[in-house]
C-alpha cells in the first residue's frame, strides 16, 4: 500500500557547523501509524517536522504525499491535510471561538464548515468546559492554549498530525485524556496517522506503534 507520507534523502536548510542538521534522511509513514520521534534536544527533530510541513525549504531530497510529489501551489492543500503543531501553541486575538471560526476562511478549507457539535465533542473529550469558547485566547494558560490549538487543528479534519512535544506544558491530570483523545482520533478513520515528538520514555511506550530515535546524528 502506498504510504501516506514518504521522505527520501531529506537534508535540512538549517545547519550546525556547516553540516545540515538532518542529512540524507529517509522514512515513510503508513496509515494508522503512530510514529514517535525521540532523542536529545537540538538534534533536529523539530526541524524534520517543520521541513515535512514545508515551513523550512528542503536543501535536498523529496517528500511524497500518497506517492505524489508536490508542486508549490499544492502546499496549502497539503498542509490542510498534514498539519504541524508547534511546541509553542499560537492562538490569535479574540475569543477561542473566533480562533476556531477564522481558520475556515482559508481558501484551502472552503469546503469545510464550522460545526459547533464537533467542537463541543472535542472540548468534552479533552476535559475542557464549554465556557472556554468565550474566553480571550491570549489569556489562556500554556497548557489550555496547547489543547485548544490541537482542537482548532482537529476540527479542520486533517489526515496526519505532526505534533511537537504537545504535552510539554499540559497539566499531568489532563495528559491521559489528551493522549487518549489523539489515539482515538487516529483510530476513528482509516487514513489517519501521527508523528509525535516526546522526551518522555513512558509516553513513547504508551503512544507509539514505531519509534525513531535520534542520536547526536541522524538515526
Amino acid at each position: 500500500m502506498t504510504p501516506i507520507l514518504e521522505v527520501r534523502n531529506l537534508s535540512s536548510r538549517i545547519e550546525r557547523q556547516g553540516i545540515p542538521l538532518i542529512r540524507s534522511f529517509s522514512f515513510s509513514l503508513q496509515r494508522q501509524e503512530r510514529l514517535v520521534l525521540t532523542g536529545p534536544s537540538g538534534v533536529g527533530k523539530s526541524v524534520l517536522l517543520r521541513t515535512i510541513a514545508f515551513l523550512e525549504p528542503l536543501k535536498e531530497g523529496e517528500i511524497y504525499f500518497y506517492g505524489k510529489k508536490l508542486s508549490p501551489n499544492e502546499i496549502p492543500q497539503f498542509r490542510s491535510q498534514v498539519m504541524y503543531l508547534a511546541q509553542k501553541p499560537s492562538l490569535s486575538e479574540g475569543t477561542v471561538e473566533d480562533n476556531f471560526k477564522r481558520v475556515f476562511a482559508f481558501k484551502s478549507q472552503k469546503e469545510k464548515k464550522y460545526n459547533s457539535e464537533l467542537v463541543l465533542g472535542f472540548l468534552k473529550q479533552f476535559n475542557l468546559s464549554e465556557s472556554f469558547l468565550n474566553q480571550q485566547a491570549k489569556l489562556l494558560s500554556g497548557g489550555e492554549a496547547q489543547i485548544l490549538a490541537l482542537i482548532r487543528a482537529l476540527i479542520l479534519e486533517p489526515s496526519v498530525l505532526l505534533l511537537d512535544e504537545p504535552t510539554a506544558s499540559i497539566d499531568s491530570f489532563r495528559i491521559t485524556a489528551f493522549e487518549k483523545g489523539i489515539v482515538d482520533w487516529v483510530h476513528s478513520s482509516q487514513d489517519r496517522a501521527l508523528i509525535w515528538i516526546t522526551h518522555q520514555k513512558e509516553q513513547e511506550h504508551r503512544l507509539s506503534t514505531r519509534v525513531l530515535h535520534f542520536e547526536g546524528t541522524n538515526p
Binding site: 498542509r79 498539519m83 499560537s90 476562511a105 482559508f106 484551502s108
Partner: peptide
C-alpha cells in the same frame, strides 16, 4: 512568526497568513 506559521500550517496561503 508563531502566528503566521500557525496559519500556514492550518492551510493558509502565504497571502492569507501575511494579511493581518
Amino acid at each position: 512568526r508563531d502566528q503566521v506559521e500557525a496559519d500556514l500550517c492550518l492551510g493558509a496561503t502565504s497571502w492569507e497568513a501575511a494579511r493581518p
